[in-house]
């Protein structure tokens, strides 16, 4: 830890808290000799609540979180989810457009965890609003079964392949049938990746040994949506420390969010052809012997 600065974001906080939850508070400790004052942020975000190590920051003037950050929170069911969307998001005083986009992203991501992760601890979420750059970072993490196990019906060979499937429209872990099941359409993560891409922002998903980052699309480059996430402008690593769960982080620049209706038009246009494309079997080739 740096002696003066602590640089953390909601993704790191949600991941750390989720891992502490997994091992149990009594087994989770924070080891550091010289904790900088700026680490008060960890206390304010509620990280110490997940560790047996007491917070070294007992006396300080706590800033009002409303509109600035959402401390690390746990969502375990649909009611918690609705309460989070209804109570927390309005505190940011965002424009109606941005509030709807954020509600949409949070609603879909939380639902994914509740339905597919089989995590005993639910979804761990955290968010931060950065006023100067007018952007919101939101992260959600679970220590459930991870994408590879969740998508076993598709027989992914690697975590990378599972991650790719998770972002492909029309793919759900519950059926191979086109259109999904009565409860799952296999579109949630594709929609969110598309929202982030059209907004020229960042999106990260990590599971198993793999981490995929949708990189920001430069303003001078025309945005195109793809069903295959590896056709996007991306960064990928499969050498991260193995994580048996899933982390999704979204960094949304609010200045550049398009009108949601326009965004849905774009997603709707691509969705049908994307599903067809992803379901089209490769043509059989003649066997020349």
């Amino acid at each position: 830890m740096d002696e003066k600065w602590v640089n953390v974001n909601p993704a790191q906080l949600a991941l750390t808290a989720a891992l502490a939850l997994k091992v149990g508070k009594e087994n989770a400790i924070i080891q550091s000799q010289n904790i900088p004052l700026s680490a008060r942020y960890l206390d304010r975000m509620g990280l110490y609540n997940f560790f047996s190590t007491p917070s070294p920051f007992r006396q300080y003037r706590k800033k009002e979180p409303a509109g600035r950050f959402v401390p690390i929170s746990i969502i375990k069911n649909g009611d918690d989810q609705s309460k989070f969307v209804t109570d927390i998001i309005p505190l940011y005083h965002l424009s109606e457009k941005n509030s709807r986009i954020l509600s949409y992203i949070v609603g879909e991501l939380v639902r994914n965890v509740l339905e597919h992760s089989f995590s005993e601890d639910g979804a761990v979420v955290a968010a931060q609003y950065y006023k100067e750059s007018n952007r919101i970072s939101f992260a959600i993490c679970d220590t459930g079964i991870g994408l590879w196990k969740s998508l076993q019906i598709w027989h992914p060979k690697t975590d990378k392949e599972a991650l790719s499937l998770a972002l492909t429209p029309g793919v759900t872990g519950t059926t191979l049938e086109l259109g999904g099941t009565s409860e799952n359409g296999g579109a949630g993560l594709f929609f969110i990746k598309s929202i982030v891409k059209i907004s020229r922002s960042y999106f990260v998903i990590m599971s198993g040994d793999s981490e995929y980052t949708l990189l920001k699309t430069r303003p001078d480059i025309k945005n195109r949506l793809y069903s295959d996430p590896f056709k996007d402008h991306y960064a990928f690593s499969n050498s991260i420390s193995r994580f048996n769960g899933t982390l999704v982080a979204v960094d949304l620049k609010l200045d550049s969010t398009p009108e949601f209706q326009k965004l849905l038009d774009d997603i709707g246009d691509i969705y049908d052809s994307a599903v067809k494309e992803s379901r089209r079997k490769p043509a059989r080739k003649p066997k020349f012997i």
């Binding site: 109606e96 639902r111 799952n184 579109a187």
Partner: peptide, 18 residues
Amino acid sequence: VSGATQSFIHALVSNVIR
């Protein structure tokens, strides 16, 4: 109602259509 997620609408009507 100001908005709805695709997952919500899917759960509401997809099976009825199918």
